[in-house]
Simulated scan of single mutants.
Amino acid sequence: MCILLLSTAHPKYPLILLSNRDEYLNRPTKSADFWPAPDSDVLSPLDLAREEHGTWIGITKEGRIAILVNFRETQNSDAVSPISRGALVKHFLVARDKTTSEWVESAIANAGPGGLFSVGGFSMVCGVLRPKSSQDSQSTEIIYQERLERLAVLTNRSTSLSSGTSWIFAPEEFVNPTIQEKENCSDTYSFVREHTYGISNSLYTEPWPKVYRGCDLLSSMIAEDIASGGMKIQSQDALIQSLFDILSVDELPREALQTGDPVAVFDALRHSIKVPVFSAVDGVLKEDYDSLSPVPTEESIQNAADGNVIVQHVKSQFETNTSDKPYEFKKGMYYGTRTQTLILVDNYGNVTYVERDLNDVTKKEPVLHEFKIDGWSE
Rank of each mutant, 00 (worst) to 15 (best):
V284D: 02
E365H: 14
I179D: 11
S242P: 06
V361D: 13
H10L: 00
T205N: 10
G283M: 06
P82T: 01
G63W: 02
P207Y: 02
D357V: 15
S166R: 14
S137M: 07
Q138L: 11
R27Y: 15
A170R: 12
A170H: 14
I246W: 04
S323N: 11
D374V: 11
I65Q: 05
A152R: 08
K364I: 15
S272M: 02
T341H: 01
S77F: 02
S316M: 11
V80L: 04
F71C: 06
P366G: 10
G63V: 02
K232Y: 09
S228P: 03
T178F: 05
G115S: 08
Q312V: 13
S235D: 05
E194F: 07
R338A: 00
G112I: 05
R85P: 02
Q138D: 11
R64N: 08
G54K: 02
H10M: 02
R72Y: 08
S40F: 07
K132Y: 03
L217M: 03
S219M: 01
R157F: 12
F174R: 12
P82A: 02
I199G: 04
T341D: 01
T259I: 06
L252P: 08
F71H: 12
T352S: 14
N176Q: 11
T29K: 15
I310R: 14
K98S: 07
V314G: 10
L17N: 09
S220H: 01
V69M: 08
L68C: 04
T99N: 05
G54N: 01
W35E: 10
Y289Q: 06
F371T: 07
W103Y: 15
G86W: 01
R21E: 08
V69L: 13
K331T: 00
K372H: 11
N20K: 13
G115W: 02
Y335D: 00
S220L: 03
